[in-house]
Write a protein that binds this DNA or RNA. Structure first.
Lengths: 243, 243
DNA sequence: CCCTAATGGGCCAGCAGCAGTCCTTTGAGC
DNA sequence: GCTCAAAGGACTGCTGCTGGCCCATTAGGG
């Protein structure tokens, strides 16, 4: 049975344990936090001892990772009390498409399928819960944030858009669903970085965001799912254009 | 902001890198392959050198893991050409509920939420694709397998049930979705192992399986999703009974 | 009957990562 | 302006894991 035809259960279960080494994975996490807007420009990362404990990584490894990310211009460390590691106010641009890897189509479909499942599911699950006032507030704030981005600010839009989508996952109160959405979102962003810049229709996207959040806040699970599905189709079409 | 109120984005991104050590994760994978029916009783695991490469783990670590799993009675190794490591014909019973950990309700809801999203999404995605003949055949075989389990064979049923659900994920052609379903299924099975034995209504479950597979084969995505959702409610109610 | 290929079994040197400890810097508060 | 707590910076010895190599066992083919 070849790898591309027929079932893949063995591939799914016997996939690599620990895909990268600790240093590389730690770097990825830091970049993920910055790119998804979990820690905004100007904000401080958790203290090294705290963060190392959360990531279950030694402080040495974390510091190596922080140095790598600092060398790339994403963060800056300050010593002393009330010091810390702070996210740069203006982030480095993502590496432009080098076109070295021709973006295997199978991988794109894989990621898009997973994203559709996770994000439409998250929207539905969020709408099906009875949200706390702070959850509702959180959603509204993130919606407003992304709606306030000026046209042309692609990178900024990407970050706040991710942050809103992540917020939707958060209010499902399922940590593992939230983590899964964060991961798949990171992968989609990497794909988007690899294709030539094509301005997304931000206005249309914001309308869709509004519809999704409204449906979630009013507890309309079916509408939330469908609106999210429509919203995702934009990026899907964009990426499929580069198979 | 406390851990249980408000958003969890930081927790999602700053969760542990490499949650267990390589040995433990490898043991988990082997058990997962056996418990989910990816390698059936009597069948052979991939050769050590091959498997170590797939898992991206050293052969020493893999062998330690295999020994642990063999000591527990799940597999048996035979040397020589055409030898290998074979899954035991009759598997050890899962450890009975020791009730030491009182099954935190939040964790249960977390896993159930993720499962609902992934499995209903997988059913829908599977139905939305145009399946190859071998995919269709695969689904039918797995459906027949689980339908043929005699009443009372709880462990056997669990394994073949998992195998069918995994097959549905497989035919979405999304490896990462398949892996995610395998993982969440493993977690659900662990939860089920932790509660006292309650015979599931196997007949009813089989009817639901039939409905789901039929919908997938006929390309009816909406029905597939809804039928899967109804099917999952059985276990959900069961597990929620032990909060 | 022997050879060979494929498999599990075992050993060892080297390195990545860890836990622990101490040093250095810096700002708030008394 | 001194003190001290909280943060980053640095070193060190230990352990888990790796990668490479060789051995032992077994069945099939000539």
């Amino acid at each position: 049975m070849s790898v591309h035809r027929g079932p893949h259960a063995a591939e799914a279960v016997f996939r690599p344990v620990r895909p990268r080494n600790a240093f590389e994975e730690t770097v990825e996490r830091l970049l993920q936090a910055i790119r998804l807007g979990v820690v905004a420009p100007g904000e401080r990362l958790p203290a090294e001892r705290d963060l190392a404990a959360r990531l279950a990584v030694s402080r040495v490894t974390l510091r190596d990772a922080i140095r790598a990310v600092a060398d790339a211009g994403y963060v800056e460390s300050r010593r002393g009390r009330y010091g810390g590691t702070f996210v740069a106010d203006d982030l480095p641009a993502s590496p432009r498409p080098r076109r070295r890897a021709p973006l295997p189509g199978a991988d794109i479909e894989d990621v898009l399928t997973l994203r559709r499942v996770l994000e439409t599911g998250a929207a539905q699950a969020a709408a099906a819960r009875s949200l706390s006032p702070s959850d509702r507030q959180h959603l509204r704030v993130r919606l407003t944030d992304v709606a306030g981005v000026a046209a042309g600010e692609e990178a900024e839009y990407r970050r706040l858009d991710s942050r809103l989508h992540l917020a939707i996952a958060e209010v499902t109160a399922s940590p593992s669903l939230t983590s899964a959405v964060a991961d798949v979102r990171t992968k989609v962003n990497e794909l988007l970085d690899a294709i030539p810049l094509l301005a997304v229709n931000i206005g249309h996207s914001n309308d869709q965001h509004h519809t999704v959040v409204e449906a979630i806040l009013s507890g309309d699970a079916q509408t939330a799912r469908v609106a999210m599905a429509e919203h995702l189709e934009g990026t899907e079409a964009l990426l499929r254009g580069f198979l």
